[in-house]
Simulated assay, not measured.
Amino acid sequence: MSLLQVRDLGKNFGGVRALDGVSFDLPEGQLLALLGPNGAGKSTCFNILNGQYRPDAGSVHFDGREISNARRSMKPRDVWRLGVGRTFQVSATFSSMTVIENVQMALVSRKRKLFSLWRPAAGMYRDEAMELLAQVGMAAQAQRPCGVLAYGDVKRVELAIALANRPRLLLMDEPTAGMAPGERNELMALTRELVVARKLAVLFTEHSMDVVFAFADRMIVLARGRIIAQGDGETIRNHPQVQEVYLGSGTTFGQEAQ
């Protein structure tokens, strides 16, 4: 059984149908790219998966447990505690805090610990935080404020924060947005290593097709809330409807990735 099972998801906003019968599976140990032009429904799908939206139709099962349907959805924090992590297109670190303090705060939240004047959070879980930072290549910058980091390094810190909850499923929304080509490849190569080492399942959205074709095991393409294609890179690249939606007929989709 797949770790994540999405069945017939539907979501409307007024007269706009953002998702229409979306279904897919995601097993552990796999990178799945969710693609589509702006307005295709990618963000709506993500927001349903982590509990921010309730679907109007369909269901989501995680590790055999139904976490969302048209009648009720688990709250984002409860979904997070089950083992669903998320990174965002716009970085969500605390810029005035140090790198290690950002990760420590995530660990405090995971362990449901409270801190006081007698036991400040800065003294808690330092070893575990440093281990996470080492995994993402940021241990040497642990004492620097996040506000002075290069953008690619901030993304690495955000990944360490997401890993603090020991997720089994990681939702990555435009993980390489705003990054230089070399930084994009480094971050996704690191993500690939974590997928293998931790047997993570990763669902990510991405507009950089070179990243998608280099690192995704499978791809799903949405257009106007519906799945129009899914499969490996070669299948998606040569799919006529995908070419039409992205680049117009007669142009090979993903050409820049070759």
Rank of each mutant, 00 (worst) to 15 (best):
M1G: 15
S2I: 03
S2R: 02
V6I: 14
D8Q: 13
D8M: 03
F13L: 12
V22E: 12
V22H: 12
P27M: 11
L31W: 06
A33L: 05
G39L: 05
G41Y: 01
S43A: 01
T44A: 10
T44F: 01
I48H: 09
R54I: 07
S59C: 05
V60P: 10
V60W: 01
H61K: 04
F62A: 03
G64R: 02
G64C: 01
E66Q: 07
E66F: 02
I67A: 01
I67P: 02
I67D: 03
S68Q: 02
R72D: 00
R72G: 00
S73G: 06
S73Y: 05
M74S: 03
P76K: 03
R77K: 02
R77Q: 10
D78P: 03
D78H: 08
V79R: 13
V79L: 10
R81V: 08
R81A: 14
R81M: 14
G83A: 14
V84M: 14
V84A: 13
G85Q: 08
G85W: 13
R86H: 14
V90K: 13
A92Q: 15
A92P: 04
T93V: 15
M97A: 03
I100T: 08
E101Y: 00
A106E: 09
R110S: 09
R112T: 06
R112Q: 15
P120Y: 10
A121S: 13
R126D: 09
D127E: 15
M130K: 03
L132W: 07
L132Y: 03
L133D: 06
V136A: 03
G137D: 00
A139L: 02
Q143M: 11
Q143V: 05
R144Q: 15
C146Y: 10
V148Y: 10
L149V: 15
L149E: 13
G152V: 14
D153H: 15
L159R: 03
A160W: 10
A160S: 11
A160E: 15
A160P: 13
I161K: 15
R166G: 05
L171P: 02
M172W: 04
D173Q: 00
M179T: 07
G182E: 15
G182P: 05
R184G: 14
R184P: 05
R184D: 10
R184H: 09
R184Y: 07
L187F: 12
M188K: 13
L190Y: 09
T191F: 14
T191A: 15
R192N: 10
E193P: 04
V195C: 08
R198F: 09
K199E: 13
V202S: 11
H207K: 09
H207R: 07
M209Y: 04
V211N: 10
V212G: 14
A214G: 12
F215N: 09
A216K: 06
A216V: 08
D217T: 05
L222V: 00
A223N: 09
R224N: 04
G225F: 00
G225T: 01
G225H: 02
I227H: 00
I227K: 00
I228A: 01
I236K: 09
I236V: 14
R237L: 04
R237T: 04
N238I: 10
H239N: 13
V242H: 08
Q243V: 12
S249G: 07
G250H: 11
G250D: 04
T251Y: 14
T252A: 12
F253I: 07
E256N: 10
Q258S: 11
Q258T: 07
